[in-house]
Design a protein around this nucleic acid. Structure first.
Lengths: 232, 232
DNA sequence: ACAAAAGTGTTGAGAGTACACCCATGC
DNA sequence: GCATGGGTGTACTCTCAACACTTTTGT
């Protein structure tokens, strides 16, 4: 590695800026939503953008992402994953900015927390139909959705989007909203049982019709499924 | 996004350095190998490390990675993929260095090309049993191997490690070396046929025993297999 | 009683996996 | 002719996907 070969990139000048950007998802109004902030400063002032900010010199990338997450959405202790690093020259018209994109999943119940710290220029938008976004954030968002869908297909990550206790129908609907497709009820329930990642709470959601049993995810039930191999 | 909120990270000083590092793989001597360079400068002088270098201000991350790939291994036009960005403070003892790690696959035939430009302090090492590495490069290498294995399990990427024409046994051995496990010959061949990513060249590898038919990958045959879903 | 959501099994098709022998060539 | 790697098929199991009706509650 050439970290010491200062010949063609002296370490003391001409460094790019490094930021973290976040695609924070939740399920709201029966659809996948993403958190956006309205930019106050140029460039793209007044335009919606993914939350994010500069990486401080003494914090890791994940720490920076969690700090931004806390500052922008008021949530802590949520699922966070590094996504991809976007660094094309020109993606920020002012200067060279390399951004390490992350995606985060927050629970529906947190929406109320968020509303409390509402800074007026922060809002949830339908992830599959967002407004025009600043910089290359549309590209980052699309990439994040792709990764989220993929992740949910082969892991049991949906519980990061659900309240502590939930019905099987709510779980299925979460998958349907993220995957943007309909699932078969019986097949879904059988597969959930086989995965054995749920436990019954004994309580029921009593509502308009027949009460539904409430479940929660078992502690430490990550349930990652092996990909089907192309070759045996 | 807070790229403009210069309050807590002015854009004009205190920026980290950004590098690209490369895990370049090939199959050699019936095992997966990775390209390492011997460091000349401090820190970790004399130690082996992944090739890499600073990102120039006017080039994209991929361009930087391809430039380093060309400079260090003399190969062009190979498979290259961004892996992950490592940025813990302290991973470089001198200063804050954030590195965007990539992995690359080069063909066995390129090894000779490489030997020609040999700079004495560049060499192939067994990927599953490398020497001690500088910085956090062991961690990066392990991550790259994990990703490579995973990628090969559900894509037809092995041809990036093979010469233009190859026998089915050579293809199977490539998979075995990367996955580090034995595969069943009949099942492997059936699955290759089903994937229909190969075409016969009509030529044969004539050698010590019964000549084997030579194949090549069909143009544009990416053959990505859907992951087995956890939920239907 | 009726509207609405909860809950429950079976079947056919395709893929995965384990397993053993003959074939063509070089020496 | 024999050693060596090339080449081929079958049976069992498991997972996937499609599909409709009964049960329980609130009003």
């Amino acid at each position: 590695m050439a970290e010491s070969e200062s010949a063609y990139a002296p370490a003391h000048y001409d460094r790019p800026s490094v930021t973290v950007d976040l695609a924070i998802f939740t399920v709201l109004h029966k659809a996948l939503h993403v958190l956006l902030v309205k930019r106050r400063a140029a460039p793209f002032a007044g335009m919606w953008a993914l939350p994010g900010g500069f990486v401080h010199m003494d914090e890791s990338l994940e720490d920076a992402a969690r700090r931004e997450l806390r500052e922008e959405s008021g949530v802590e202790d949520v699922y966070l994953e590094q996504l991809y690093t976007f660094g094309d020259p020109g993606r920020d018209p002012r200067t060279r900015v390399i951004t390490v994109a992350h995606f985060a999943l927050v629970r529906a119940e947190h929406q109320r927390l968020r509303a409390a710290t509402d800074a007026a220029a922060v809002n949830w938008f339908p992830a599959y139909d967002p407004p025009a976004l600043a910089f290359d954030h549309r590209q980052i968002l699309d990439y994040a959705i792709t990764r989220l869908r993929y992740k949910l297909e082969y892991t049991a990550l949906a519980f990061e989007l659900l309240p502590e206790e939930f019905t099987l129908t709510e779980l299925q609907e979460t998958y349907e909203h993220v995957l943007n497709e309909q699932l078969d009820k019986r097949n879904f329930r059988r597969k959930v049982q086989q995965a054995s990642v749920l436990e019954e709470t004994g309580r029921r959601r009593v509502g308009e019709h027949r009460p539904a049993r409430l479940f929660r995810f078992r502690e430490g039930a990550v349930a990652e499924v092996k990909a089907r191999r192309l070759f045996p």
